[in-house]
Each structure stands twice: as structure tokens, then as C-alpha cells.
Amino acid sequence: MGKQDIKSNILTTTVESAINWGRKNSLWPMPFGTACCGIEFMAVLASRTDMSRFGAEAIRFSPRQSDLLIVAGRISIKMMPVLIRIYEQMPEPKWVISMGACASSGGVFDTYSVIQGIDQFIPVDVYVPGCPPRPEGVVGSLLKIQDLVDKEKLFDYTFSGSK
């Protein structure tokens, strides 16, 4: 029985959807807050727009325990190696939200020292515009991430960790 046969097997597809369901309702975010968006991210976790309604309230400050990286704030060129290292320390599968104008495109800081969009270095799944975005915007991006997790395939991962 080849790999394709396993993919089309009804038992493994059910396991896949069960795993995806579990993953998408228990995303553990790792906040990388370097600026004011990090302050706004606290409001996302507060009771008004409660992120624990979607199972993502377990904020881990260790990248090895988390599967959702939330980059909030401007990333300088000296901070980028740290961010790349944190991204690489996260176990697969992992997702990235780029929160706010500075992380997504540099915003007003069009200077030599600020990264003009973190997607030049690490893959970004969902961009949230705003300076900073409303908490609802971040929750909306979390829902988009949940849709992405739902489409995840169980056998798309190799041991090298590439998709």
C-alpha cells in the first residue's frame, strides 16, 4: 500500500480531521511583541475580546511549546536573527501572524534599520493591517489561521520539517 493509498483511506482522513480539529482549537501563541502592538495584543487576551473563546489563551513564552508566532511590532535589522531563531525553534506545524503595519511592511519607519516586512525572512500566513490593529482584527486573523489549520494535510510533513 503506497502513500497515495493511505491518503485516500477513509480511516486516516478521519484521523487527520480529528487532529486538525484539535490543533485549531488549541493554538498556543508565542507573542513576539517589540512595540505598541504588543501592548494591544494584551487587550486581545483581556475579557472584552477574549481569545480563550477560541482556545488560544495559553500564551507560551517559550517557542518550543508554541505553534503560532504572533509578530507584533517593528523588527530592526539586529532583532531579525533573534526572530528567525525563535521561528526555527518552534516545532512543526507552525503558523505566523504579522500583526500591525510595522511588522508587515515597516509602516512609517522606512529607514535602513527597520525590516520592511518580516515576510522577507520568515513565511507569514496572515497579515493584520492597522497601527495597532483593533483586537477584533487579531481575532479575525486567528479565525483565518484556524481555517488554514483545518486544511492541513497529515502527510505533508517530512522529517526535515519542510512543508
Partner: peptide
Amino acid sequence: LLRCIFCGFCEMACPEQAIELTEIYDFSNS
């Protein structure tokens, strides 16, 4: 929109009241 910081200077500068900022706030995209 990813570079915009929603400061509203554009609608203040506009002599024709052409550009305006609305109340839509949730528009993230992949």
C-alpha cells in the same frame, strides 16, 4: 493598507473631501 497607519492626515489634507476613513476595522488577509 499594510503600510498605512490610519492617522487620518489624508482626509484632513483633502480639499475636496474625497478620501475618508470609514469604520471598518477587521480586514486581515492571508
